[in-house]
Design a binder for these strands. Sequence first.
DNA 1: GCAACCGCTGGAAGCGTTTCCGACTACGCA
DNA 2: TGCGTAGTCGGAAACGCTTCCAGCGGTTGC
Lengths: 330, 330
Amino acid sequence: MADVARRAGVSMATASRALSDHPHVAAGTRARVLAAAEQLSYVISPEASRLAGGVTGRVAVVVPHISRWFFATLLDGLEQVLREGGLDVLLYHVGDAADRRDFFQRLPARRKVDAVVVLGMPVHDAERDRLELMGVHIVAAGGQVENYPYVSIDDAAAGRQAVDHLIFLGHRRIGMIAAIDPAEPGWPVLPGRTLAYRAALADAGLPAGPELVVTVPWGGLSGADAMARLLSLREPPTAVYAHSDEVALGAMRTLRRAGLRIPEDMSVVGIDDHPMAELADLTTVAQPVLEQGVLAGRMLLELLAGGSGTDGATVPTRLVVRGSTAPPRR
Amino acid sequence: MADVARRAGVSMATASRALSDHPHVAAGTRARVLAAAEQLSYVISPEASRLAGGVTGRVAVVVPHISRWFFATLLDGLEQVLREGGLDVLLYHVGDAADRRDFFQRLPARRKVDAVVVLGMPVHDAERDRLELMGVHIVAAGGQVENYPYVSIDDAAAGRQAVDHLIFLGHRRIGMIAAIDPAEPGWPVLPGRTLAYRAALADAGLPAGPELVVTVPWGGLSGADAMARLLSLREPPTAVYAHSDEVALGAMRTLRRAGLRIPEDMSVVGIDDHPMAELADLTTVAQPVLEQGVLAGRMLLELLAGGSGTDGATVPTRLVVRGSTAPPRR
DNA sequence: GCAACCGCTGGAAGCGTTTCCGACTACGCA
DNA sequence: TGCGTAGTCGGAAACGCTTCCAGCGGTTGC
């Protein structure tokens, strides 16, 4: 910066002010400084800048299972907005519970970021307290979290759309493949999607035998296994509601291999509207994933700008009817 | 840190050395310093540390199309290794040509990182010159880039495995669906995969009519369109080689909708071994994606540790035969 | 027995900014 | 004409750490 100041014929103090857009700098002076910086292709040192009391300009994004479409797409939207807002994205992939503990243990103390965005997972109270204690903002996207700014879908409503669709088609015996996160054993994942199932059946006066619900770790192959289990029932369902499209796609493989036709012999509905759902003609409940990332980014920007921010936003889902659902044969 | 030093009864110099694991510190002294730090729950300020030390402890990762499985998985592997190596990942998503130009023009990562990893895309010469301006290490993964340490597959070999498989099964009329990056119009994407096709056909003395090759922007729906075009030929192929699994899956949808059976009426083979390939019973050429990210990470770590690093690594691919390929009917 | 040496430690000079505080200029007003 | 004031600008002190260099006592080599 000394070079820039010298070249512009001003002191370092003035150069600093000009570069960081402070008031009390004459327009002409500012222009000269910026020109000099440009010519020298000067870039400020974030370390020094932060050390001297500024902010880091960095945001930590915590994401589990980054290679999955849902999380990667969320990240896509978020990164876009934050980049436009002049913030850098520091990526933290917490694959399992240990990673997670590790992250919340050290990151806040390290003072590396101004804010944390948690993607697609709930945040425990203790973790939230820890973050707030360190004075960093926190925003969540893609997973229902309370007590602080978040953006997500209404899982119960989404599940309801899926199951109600099956009921409307005339199905009376509907199975559910519930997915749980293998990295968070015992953690109630997407309880809304499960509750929706029970509520919809109850409202329609349909039986909900426990044998109709299969719970498996998240994933396509798990979905395949789960479907096999449902097929092994004495009286299999005529339709299946899967917690996610990946799981549903797995279920479809089992059906295909068993020689059953979709939707004639079995209807299948998922949630998410994964790109593959379109290719597989899977009926699903679409949620705007990219948009959730974008919204979370905007929320954070507002928060960092001093705004109070909204409490949270729930984005709407919608049923997308494709070829995997139809009335039951009988 | 001054507090810690005082409490431990040493100077700041010694405290610094003890905390950063330097040699030339007596074991007892180190223990005392660490204990003091522990009691005061002291954490080092990364900014100050870096300002004084000269390194940032951060790595920029440049990735296009992050929501696609391939890139996200590459990132997954890379992040894992870098995090273990104590480095933070600064994510730069260059979605389209504009982003890309912007990135290389402004070099937003300048002064912020010790190294740059470019994932899954070739770097033009001009861009490379810009990168070198940053004066940091550069590593590429998942896309062949020369002049740099890189890790990728041999696209020509992979393509060869796919096409040779079809030829071996007895197919004489083989179509190709070539994918190009919509964000990089006119850029020769994956030329190896195209060359492999021509070479394999030539070696087997098979015709390679230009009508058998359809080039579309990357994506499942594009694959579906491409397949439709192949089916509209007076004499359609009996097998199709797609540049990627997503494209192949799209092609399969068209076949399914047309009432054609796979593999009886048409064999389909892809490249990548996308998780969905397994669910769709798609024969493909698998490439170790996560591993490429991991390897690139290790390479970088070695480079940063002062090692000379290897020039590059090519990881092997292997044919995975599933249910989408079989000998032609006639 | 003396010098060279070694392992450990402390003092202090940066690292590149931001920002407080004081100074200087040019003006408006009495 | 003299003085207060607003608008600018420069000097210099942090910010919290790393590391060079020198000093210290004690050990080794000849």
